[in-house]
Each structure stands twice: as C-alpha cells, then as structure tokens.
Design a protein around this nucleic acid. Structure first.
Lengths: 363, 363
DNA sequence: GTCGTTGGTTACAACGATGTAGAGTGAATC
DNA sequence: GATTCACTCTACATCGTTGTAACCAACGAC
C-alpha cells in the first residue's frame, strides 16, 4: 500500500528511527545520512502517516471551533479569523456547527468528536449558566460569548453592556426619543441579548429617556430574516420609532429592509445601529453604524489562550479577556455624509481579568 | 491516563476483542456478556480512542472542504451546507482556507494535511486547466467550480454560460441597452469569470446589442469591496450604464453601494443582477435579482459523490454534475414591486454527464 | 457416537509511527 | 593509555485499536 518509514529505512539502509529523526529534524544526524534518507523519501514519495504519529504522541495538532452556524456572517468571519490564527501556530481547525441545538452543544463538550482534537473553542448559544457543570472538562477549553460566566475555563467575551449603552446614548444624542431594540430575549438574564438589552436600558436612563416595553422587539435567532420580521411586526403594530438598536448586524440588515419596505428613510426617519461590525454593514445602503466588539482580537486571543493551555496545564488561573471595542458611525446614524468614510464615535477599553470558577473544585 | 479497552476488558472479565465487539455492535454476543461490558464501560467512563481506530482501519470518517475563504458569503453558505450534508453521513468536515493563494491550493492537493481525511471537496480559485496533472491524485476527490475541467475526478459545476446569458437577456428585455459586467478577468478562458462573461456576450448578441469593452469591469477578487471599487471606477470614468450584471452577489452588493453613492437609483436608473443567490440579496435595499446556481444541490451532490468514491473505487467513470439553476427576479430589476416576494424569471435544466479525463492515464 | 455447523469468545499480530535506553564511534581530556 | 564525552545510530517496546484465525461448547443430523 502506502510507503512507510520502514520502506524508506530499507532503501536508505538505516533504521526506522533514523528516518523518523530525519523527518522530525532531529539535529544530530550526519549530513550524508540525512541526504541518503531524504533521497529515499523523495524517490519513494514517502509521506508521514499523521494518524500513526497522533496515536503515538497523543496529540493531533488540531483544534475544534464550535459555532452555531457559518451562514451567520459573524460566525463566518470568526471562523475565518480563527483558522488564520491557528494556521500561524501550525494548527488545523475543525469546525462544528451546533445549529442552535442544545443537544448538539452538549455533544460538542462530551461527544465522540471531542477527542479528535487537542482543544476546543466554543461559542455556545443554548447552554447557559445552569449548565456550568458541563464546562468542567478535562481538556483545554476556551469559551466565547456571554452565555456562561465563571466556568473553569478561559473566556473571551465583549463589553456588551457598556457598548450597548454607548450605542443607545449615541442614538439619543442625535435627538432620537423613541429608540427600539431588536432581538431581545425575554426572561433571560445572561447572554448577548440580555446584556445588550441591559446596556440599552442603562443608555436610556443615562439619556433621561423612559423605558417603554413596546419598543422592545423579541427575536430568538439573530438572522436577517428574524430582524426583518421583528422590525416589521413592530412597525405594523403601529409602534412609533425614530431609532433602532439591533442587537446584531444581521438583524440590523433585516430591520433596514423592513423599514425600507414601509417607506421609512434611514437615517432621516429612523436612525439605526447594529452590533458586530461585520463586513456587510460597510456596503449596505445606507451603510450601518455598528459596534465593533474587537472581533479580530477575539479570534486571536481565543487561539492564543487555547494554545497556552494545550502546551501544558499551567498554574495560572482562568482568564477573562475583553477586547477593546468601538462604536463606528456610518450613514445610518447620519454620523457621516453619504459616501463619506466611517468614523469612530466612541471607544471602550478592554481588559484581562483573572477569575475564579463558580464551581466547587474541591471535590 | 485515559481508560482503554484493556481496562474495560479486565473489569468485565472478558478479552479486549470482546469489548471491541460490543463497542462496534457486533451481533453475536451473549446478552449478559454485552451487559457486563457495557456496565464496565459506563463505570469507567470509557471512550473509544478514535486515533487508534483510525490507524487500524485506515479511515478517519473526516473529509476536507477546501475553499478560498469563509468570509465570502457564498463559501460560508457552501460550508454550512456541506457540513450538514456530511453530518447525515456521519462524516466530520475539516475546512481549509486557501485564501486565493496558488501555493495553498497546491498544498491542499499534496500537503501534509491531505492525509488527515478520507477525501477532498475542492473549490480552486487559482489552479487552472494548466495544472490538470495536479488533480490526478490517488485519493477520493470532488472538484467544485469552473477552473478545471476534465480532470480525473468527479466534478460539480454550474450552468455558468447559459445562466449568465439568461441574466443578460433578461436585462435587455427590460429595455436596457448599456449593460455593464462587473468582475471580469481579462485573458482567462476558463473559470467563473470567463464563462459568465462569455454568457454575457452571448446574451448581448441574442438581444441584438453591441459588445462594448468599456462596459466590462475587471475585478480580481470577488468581494463587496472590489465590486464597489470596480463599479465606482467605471461610473467615475463616465461610462454610461443602465444595467449591471455583477458576476457574483458580493460584487452586486458592492456595486449597489457604489451606484447609490453616486445618486443612481436601482432599478430606475440602473437595473442590477447578481449571481449565487446568497441570503444577503434577499434583504438588501433594494433586494437584488440573482442567479441561483443550485447551491443546495451542489453541496449535497458533492458530498454524495465523495462518499461514493470513498466507499470503494468503483468502475464508473467520472461524473460532471450540473444542478438546475434559476434566475430569481427581485426589486433590483423591477421584476417585483417594492416589498413583493421574489419571482422566478427563468429556469435552466441541469444534468449529469459521464466524462473522460483529458489526462493520458495509460502511463 | 461422530461429524459438521453455528455461536460466542479469545490470542495474536498487525496499523505506522515515536520514546527510551543504550551501543558504537572518534575526539578531547587527564 | 585510559577515561570521558558528544555525536550518531539502532533495537525494542509501545500508543489503543481491529482483522484473522482458531478454539471450545452446544446442537442437530446422520
């Protein structure tokens, strides 16, 4: 079948281990031996069998990235960045789509695929604080997002509350009084929806605006379609609105669509801000202001933290990293003239924190 | 360290092989033996070591999907679909981003990661017909796209010429006389750009319109940004345009942006059609007409063909599969009123063809 | 009572690499 | 001239599974 080290060894007249040493760039090899082996490798077209090596070394040099779905632009961009960052560390990325299914998310942590890779970067959507115990795993893990806090793992998250507050305050500073929010999850206390909605409320308070439940639009999944539906539903119900804070950009695009369909001009009639700062919003008509939560740094940090954990179980505590974020003003808030480049409206500092887990690890 | 079959075997008082048989659902096992083993497995928390199994069985149950980049929505959607289709066959997908680098594309076919999986679904962007020999590989391969034809591999492609022709004819049928194309690649004879441009020319001819080189906009990479730049460049150069055929949807979105920035209304002043029918174009303002090349079927077929090849080197020839495609009319061509649902303007049949390779396989 | 058959299980040898320990060199050191 | 040391290489066990062949018991057929 395939050429093995044994074949190469025979051809080069050396031991298998010497071939292995050549392949692995072991330094103490006589140049002529190395050359002889290399020639044999070339002549036979030998390729190292990664599976065998993985078995022997107990490493795969692969990591898993688990996200809800790639068709959501935010996660597609995240995956792109994680793959690139991993690449720089010679790691291969395996992507799991959980599709917003709780079962699939549990599977990511416990299922049979788990052991295919050396570690996991996990952005849960369904699992929550109540499932904290599930995150007490015996493999390197980095958690993304804001569904779960204080798990025994490194965590990269964002300035959700502060950024949402800044976005809301900004809308108010434009003179808007009826600021709607699109994408809320009623009853939740943690998660992007809850935190950003909390920031929204704080922003209203800071601006001296009343909170009106009528202005809160629910949307379970954060797609373009749900953003459009939620916005449409509110407008069709006669809710008066002069600004919209969409909790992510996909919904902002959907909301824009719904507003347009009802002959409401953005930003003249309704100002609009999204969240995530995906590439789309730089090219929509009009361009949409958004919160850049530091996506580039999120991906890079997640990979770095994971690599550190894989390298060895260090003594350091679990870290919570929050990248710096920015509020980017574009046409949808009238911050820039039509066709003018974007403009940074606000900047929020990030930070790194050493945290302790909520779990009782004394057991 | 980890629990192995050996540990389970000892605990259950059976041989290792019997444990293996239980795990692999071998039928001839006494119920009580099975139960004893199962209990031992549960008690010890045993998990099958996939790497060891992979080594022994020479299978990984993983496949690779190699695409230019996930931040391009078309490929993100493709990846999403391929992962789902693979899932149904219990396969795990590893994604490689080639980033439009020739070197990376060669690596996908020959590099060290190649052997991590049982097969490859490859959508090349840089490799071309001149590299045909590279595709003569000894592992299951399915080629996507239109860079390479008649390689010794299964191939899933699209109705590029016919669909582009239909799109162009449709624009002409709306009374448009100055139809620009965005995204052309000068000098190429194969590839999406060349084929769709060819369809564009045929469409012009069919409509009795002259071909004007001024109306051909070059764009190397097919991103929103390049679509916007190309469109902007043409308009700023004073090219008169009353319709635009963007060779993919990302560029259509960019072009829309550029048109809007110059106060040109779509569809009143300029009609616009894209290609790919990604989710974005259903929510842009206005919604954009596009060619749906049968994306759903492409992903599914690619996985099916690959699975078939992996199952066993069958005697059947290499297939070229072209899914049925459709021209979907939306607001950007005035095919539907504002806010009205999309409408199928044209349908093109697909087909399956048994092809022979251009390579001399007699060697 | 012997002979296939089938069912249930096992021993053993792979799969293709790497870690460990140690055996030969020859040069440098005392 | 013996000892040490660094360098170069090898033999062997091992990673955790699964395929193969073969064994034993029980059974019905003759």
């Amino acid at each position: 079948m395939a050429v093995t080290m044994h074949d190469v060894a025979v051809r080069a007249g050396v031991s298998i281990k010497t071939v292995s040493n050549v392949v692995n760039a072991y330094p103490h090899i006589r140049p002529e031996t190395r050359q002889r082996v290399q020639e044999a490798i070339d002549e036979l077209g030998y390729r190292l069998n990664t599976t065998a090596r993985n078995l022997r070394t107990r490493r795969t040099d692969m990591i898993t990235l688990a996200v809800p779905e790639l068709s959501l632009p935010y996660f597609a961009e995240l995956a792109d960045r994680v793959i690139r960052a991993a690449e720089e560390q010679s790691l291969t990325v395996l992507i799991e789509q959980t599709g917003g299914s709780r079962e699939r998310e549990v599977d990511v942590l416990t299922g049979k695929r788990r052991q295919l890779t050396d570690g996991l970067i996990f952005s849960p959507l369904e699992l929550s604080q109540a499932d904290l115990a599930l995150f007490d795993v015996d493999f390197p893990l980095v958690i993304l997002g804001e569904r779960v806090f204080d798990a025994p793992a490194d965590h990269v998250t964002m300035n959700n509350v502060a950024a949402a507050r800044a976005a809301t305050v900004h809308l108010a500073s434009l003179g808007r009084r009826r600021i709607a929010v699109v994408g809320a999850h009623e009853g939740e206390e943690l998660g992007s929806a809850a935190l950003r909605t909390e920031g929204y409320k704080q922003g209203l308070a800071e601006a001296g605006l009343p909170f009106d439940p009528e202005l809160v639009g629910e949307a379970g999944l954060w797609h373009r379609s749900t953003g459009s539906e939620t916005m449409g539903r509110m407008l069709d119900a006669g809710v008066q609105v002069d600004a919209v804070f969409a909790l992510n950009d996909a919904m902002a695009l959907g909301a824009l669509h719904a507003l347009h369909a009802r002959n409401l001009d953005v930003p003249r009639d309704v100002a609009l801000i999204g969240f995530d700062d995906i590439d789309d919003v730089r090219y929509s008509v009009p361009t949409i202001s958004s919160v850049d939560p530091g996506s580039a740094q999120i991906a890079r940090t997640a990979v770095d933290l994971l690599v550190e954990r894989i390298a060895g179980p260090s003594e350091r505590g679990y870290r919570r990293v929050v990248p710096a974020s920015r509020l980017v003003g574009r046409e949808s808030t009238g911050d820039v003239a039509e066709g003018a480049p974007e403009q940074i409206v606000a900047e929020l500092e990030g930070g790194v924190e050493e945290v302790s887990t909520l779990l009782d690890k004394t057991a």
